[in-house]
């Protein structure tokens, strides 16, 4: 049944003439300009900038004391927390999903409610260009924001600590940026999917935020509860506890937040040698050991990283298919 549908869909695509990407850049430019000049994004970007300055400044104050002891001091700027502030990555893990959701929640239903969709689609473009253009513009906005933040952090490292980052630190920082982009892509993809499912922008925004809350707040508790129920520690043996911990980790990894946190830990903390049950919560102040070379750290996070990217692609594909099948009229 589903293969039949897919086949007829493929035929329909094959029969169409002209590139599906005609007009793609026009859409990208328009959406990008909207995002960058829109008040919604400006507020969120200001917020992120302030957080970056605040948390990184606090981090520099803590780091001052350990200068000279740590070969990866620059990376500490991202991960060091100083009471009562969380670390920069801690804040980012919170603000990035919100920003990404704000970028996507009215992507499609907004065009319906403004009654612009039929006018836009009556121009010589396919729907493919419209949906991909919106997606790319969202990603580009996130990328621009993240690069700006990264520059701020690096600049503060330079000026406050007089600390030039080493080559490997720059590489790790950039990889962290890419991983963050993928993580943000998930939340944007999700909110765009909801914008195709729900007719009201308010509904799609609330639903996306609900899903985010589920993963940010409740998922770890759920994972713990379920693993305790399924793998109870009756005799208190190490094997039992390990089995329970393994199950909990497996469940936790269904959350993009876990995947992202693991990726970030390994990338920003060269000392991390494995992402086992012991290390998951150690985003800050991980065990000091001999640092791994960048290639090894990358190998550790490769599954997590590819999973993040795969989820982004999956969410986009779902949005794409759904949008292709929708009537132009609301």
């Amino acid at each position: 049944m589903s293969t039949q549908v897919a086949q007829s869909g493929a035929q329909a695509v094959a029969r169409r003439e002209g590139s599906p990407w005609t007009g793609l850049w026009a859409v990208v430019y328009k959406e990008l300009a909207d995002h960058l000049t829109g008040i919604r994004m400006q507020i969120l970007e200001t917020l992120m900038l302030l957080t970056a300055v605040g948390t990184v400044y606090a981090a520099t104050q803590s780091i001052r004391q350990t200068i000279g002891e740590d070969p990866f001091l620059f990376l500490r700027l991202f991960t060091t927390a100083r009471e009562p502030l969380p670390s920069f990555v801690g804040f980012l893990g919170f603000l990035i999903p919100l920003t990404a959701i704000a970028l996507g929640f009215d992507a499609i239903n907004g065009e319906y409610s403004r009654r612009t969709l039929s006018r836009v689609l009556s121009q010589p473009i396919y729907r493919d260009a419209l949906i991909l253009g919106k997606f790319l513009a969202g990603l580009a906005t996130l990328a621009i924001t993240l690069v700006a933040l990264w520059v701020v952090v690096t600049g503060m490292g330079l000026f406050v600590l007089g600390l030039p980052p080493g080559g490997e630190e720059v590489a790790r920082g950039l990889l962290f940026l890419v991983a963050t982009l993928a993580y943000a892509g998930i939340w944007m993809g999700l909110s765009m999917l909801f914008s195709a499912i729900f007719r009201q922008p308010a509904t799609s925004a609330m639903t996306a935020i609900a899903v985010w809350l589920l993963f940010a707040v409740f998922w770890d508790m759920l994972a713990a509860l379920i693993s305790q129920a399924l793998r109870p520690t009756q005799y208190g043996g190490v094997a039992e506890e390990l089995a329970q911990a393994r199950l909990q980790l497996l469940l936790a990894r269904f959350s993009p937040n876990t995947l992202y946190a693991e990726t970030v830990i390994a990338l920003l903390n060269p000392a991390v040698r494995s992402l086992g049950p012991v290390l998951i919560t150690q985003l800050e102040g991980a065990v000091l050991g001999t640092p791994l070379p960048l290639g090894q750290s990358l190998l550790i996070v490769w599954p997590q990283f590819t999973a993040l990217v795969a989820v982004v692609i999956l969410l986009f594909a779902a949005t794409y298919v759904l949008f292709q099948r929708q009537e132009v009229r609301a």
Binding site: E17, D34, R114, R115, R119
Partner: peptide, 24 residues
């Protein structure tokens, strides 16, 4: 129009009922 929509839409202007624009 089913197979060559781009050719059609290049040459045909459409004013939908209750036309909408980007208000901002």
């Amino acid at each position: 129009p089913t197979r060559q929509p781009l050719q059609v839409k290049r040459r045909v202007g459409y004013l939908p009922d209750s036309v909408g624009f980007y208000d901002e």
